[in-house]
């Protein structure tokens, strides 16, 4: 059984890599026994699937964080207050980010709903001309839906749209309606609806900007997330200075070989103001980066790239012991 499990895992690992390997080496279109084959035809769909697959781990992360920190809080372990802060900050931020997103979606949905009316009028007239459906009940439905949207700010635009709809209905009621009149009235109604949509969009934007979720989520980002993140990493500056003072000492010729380019590069990238040491320093710095550090780095890079590729192939072909493989399967 254990061997079968292993084989299933190896099979899926191989299949996963096979598509992307072939997609790289095969031409986009090629002929096989008279048939044209387009290998990447469903590339969009496949890659979409892979992204969905990788995103499915999100829930696992949340479960893990709650299990770890929830246990600390429940068992009142030392520093449980920190875990509580972590979980609360997670929940509050997630709540406001989600609320902000919902508000955004609501705003866009409202606008899209009104924009859709324009398409609706066009469809109704088209369907009438191709005798697919009766237009009057459909336009009546439009009037009813417009009536539902009444508010002091929109009243004028809604009135105008309703009256233009009624005129269009009258045009349609007349037997043998003159095609030109029908179309010009349709255009007038569309313009009225566009005016209404503009008003709706303006109001939706104002409402969205007033939304508390948007304000709170940007407050969290600007007052906590950004300053905490950058301050945390800037601590390194203090340590790099102490490290430079304590450890950067010329105890051997090799240390001197590090020191000289380091100093030249440091001096070449900073402005010196009136106390300029030597105006050629930026050029010396560029020369060192282009002709000393680049080839040395390249040599290291070639080695790591080849090793990385070899490792990737071993992983793809399941020749490498997987970090997620347990001992039981090893024995199996």
């Amino acid at each position: 059984m254990s061997q079968l499990k292993n084989k299933i895992i190896v099979f899926f690992t191989f299949i996963g890599g096979l598509y992307f390997f072939l997609e790289y080496i095969l031409p986009e279109k090629w002929q096989l026994i008279g048939y044209e084959i387009e290998f990447g035809k469903y590339h969009d769909q496949i890659t979409q699937g892979v992204i969905i697959l990788s995103l499915m781990t999100i829930g696992l992360g949340i479960i893990n964080i709650f299990m770890t920190h929830g246990a600390i809080i429940l068992k009142s372990r030392p520093h449980w207050i920190n875990s509580l802060v972590l979980l609360l900050s997670f929940l509050i931020t997630a709540f406001y980010l989600t609320s902000d997103f919902i508000a955004q979606e609501k705003k866009n949905y409202t606008i899209a709903r009104f924009e859709n009316l324009e398409l609706f009028v066009k469809t109704v007239v088209e369907d009438y001309e191709t005798k697919q459906s009766a237009p009057l009940p459909r336009l009546q439905a439009l009037i009813i839906s417009l009536e539902k949207e009444r508010s002091p700010e929109l009243n004028a635009a809604i009135n105008s749209s309703i009256s233009e709809t009624k005129i269009l209905m009258r045009e349609l009621e007349v037997n043998n309606a003159v095609k030109n009149n029908l179309h010009s009235q349709k255009e007038i109604l569309i313009v009225a609806l566009q005016g209404l949509t503009k008003q709706v969009a303006r109001l939706a934007q104002i409402n969205y900007e007033k939304d508390k979720a948007q304000l709170v989520s940007s407050f969290i980002k600007n007052s906590l997330f950004i300053p905490l993140g950058s301050a945390m990493f800037s601590l390194l500056a203090f340590y790099v200075v102490t490290a430079a003072y304590r450890s950067f000492r010329i105890k051997s010729w090799e240390a001197l070989a590090i020191m000289i380019p380091a100093l030249l590069i440091m001096l070449g990238q900073i402005p010196h103001g009136p106390a300029y040491i030597y105006s050629g320093l930026p050029d010396i710095r560029t020369w060192l980066l282009k002709n000393l550090s680049s080839p040395a780095f390249r040599a290291i890079f070639f080695g790591s790239a080849i090793a990385g590729l070899a490792m990737a192939v071993r992983m793809w072909l399941s020749l490498e012991k997987s970090p997620v493989q347990d001992d039981e399967q090893d024995r199996g």
């Binding site: 895992i9 190896v10 899926f12 690992t13 191989f14 299949i15 996963g16 890599g17 096979l18 598509y19 992307f20 390997f21 790289y24 892979v50 697959l53 990788s54 990737a312 192939v313 992983m315 793809w316 072909l317 399941s318 997987s322 997620v324």
Partner: peptide, 10 residues
């Protein structure tokens, strides 16, 4: 394994 395979293939 499937995702590891993909990164290997790429």
């Amino acid at each position: 394994g499937f995702l590891l395979g993909i990164s290997g293939g790429m």
